[in-house]
């Protein structure tokens, strides 16, 4: 039973699966309500819901924020993998802390502040999932650029989304060729399992040797291509920036998005009184 379960999970975690999920997350849902919003509006929206819950201890306010980001996460059609990682992260953080605090004389009373902490953590991370996963990477990069974030950051985001599939398949190829040439130890019994794990980890470490050389070549090509097109000049030029940001538009729908968020939060605060 456990064996079946573990192979099942390992199947899910193949590199192909990861690649598909990441790509789907980045480019798969460009027509959702969230993806169509102006990136500047979403970033400001995130600034509120990513920061304010940390400083407020009012349970109604926190619940209101949580429900709102839950709705926006649903609207953004986030892929299962990202939500799974989110759930694991939240649970492991608070659950672990709770179990350990039991050893030090904590009781159910410890649970309440921990629940508030969990609520805060999940609100902030769902807000970030909505904004950073829901938005098309190019629009996100443009939005960051508009707020005068360093040019390197926008460049890195655009570069990452385009290069990641390539890098992943290259890594996979190197791993596979290692596997073909080597003989894996049998994973029978506890000793065998440990040996197998060590073998796997060692293989991953070693495969970074050819990978580093390959990526070094690739990054040289990239930078040379960038230089030919005058990247370093474009990065500082005001006109280029203007041209790049020309397609950002603030629409009625964006204003509506903000107004509805404010309406929801203030309504909850009023009901409470």
């Amino acid at each position: 039973m456990t064996k079946k379960l573990s192979t099942n999970i390992l199947d899910k975690l193949s590199i192909d699966y990861l690649r598909n999920q990441v790509l789907k997350n980045a480019y798969g849902n460009l027509d959702t309500v969230i993806a169509k919003r102006d990136p500047r509006v979403l970033l400001i929206w995130y600034l509120f819901f990513g920061l304010v819950p940390w400083f407020v201890d009012d349970l109604y306010f926190l619940m209101a924020c949580f429900v709102l980001v839950l709705v926006t996460t649903y609207l953004a059609k986030i892929t299962a993998l990202v939500l799974f990682v989110f759930a694991i992260g939240v649970f492991s953080q608070s659950g672990y802390l709770f179990i350990v605090s039991l050893f030090f004389g904590g009781d159910v009373n410890t649970l309440i502040p921990l629940l508030i902490l969990t609520l805060k953590v999940s609100t902030c991370s769902l807000a970030s999932i909505t904004v950073f996963s829901g938005l098309d990477p190019d629009r996100l990069a443009n939005g960051l650029m508009w707020f005068n974030f360093p040019e390197r950051l926008s460049f890195s985001i655009s570069y990452a989304y385009r290069m990641l599939p390539l890098l992943m398949s290259e890594f996979q190829n190197v791993l596979l060729s290692f596997r073909m040439r080597g003989k894996a130890p049998s994973s029978e019994g506890f000793k065998g399992k440990v040996q197998y794990l060590i073998y796997q980890v060692k293989m991953i470490m070693q495969s970074f040797y050819p990978l580093m050389l390959n990526v070094a070549k690739r990054s040289r090509t990239t930078v040379e291509a960038l230089e030919i097109r005058g990247y370093r000049n474009a990065a500082t030029s005001k006109e280029v920036r203007k041209l790049k940001l020309a397609d950002l538009q603030f629409t009625y729908d964006d204003a509506l998005f903000i107004a509805l968020s404010i309406l929801w939060i203030t309504a909850i605060l009023l009901i409470k009184r």
């Binding site: 975690l13 990861l18 990441v22 993998l81 990682v85 390197r152 890195s156 570069y159 990452a160 290069m163 990641l164 890098l167 992943m168 890594f171 970074f208 990978l211 580093m212 990526v215 070094a216 690739r218 990054s219 040289r220 990239t222 930078v223 040379e224 960038l226 230089e227 370093r232």
Partner: peptide, 24 residues
């Protein structure tokens, strides 16, 4: 300068890829 950019890109791509796996 452009070599520095190359190093930046190299380190970003490799470490980014690796941390992506560990996150998952």
């Amino acid at each position: 300068q452009s070599q520095k950019l190359m190093i930046f890109v190299l380190s970003m791509a490799l470490y980014g890829l690796a941390t992506l796996f560990t996150e998952l």
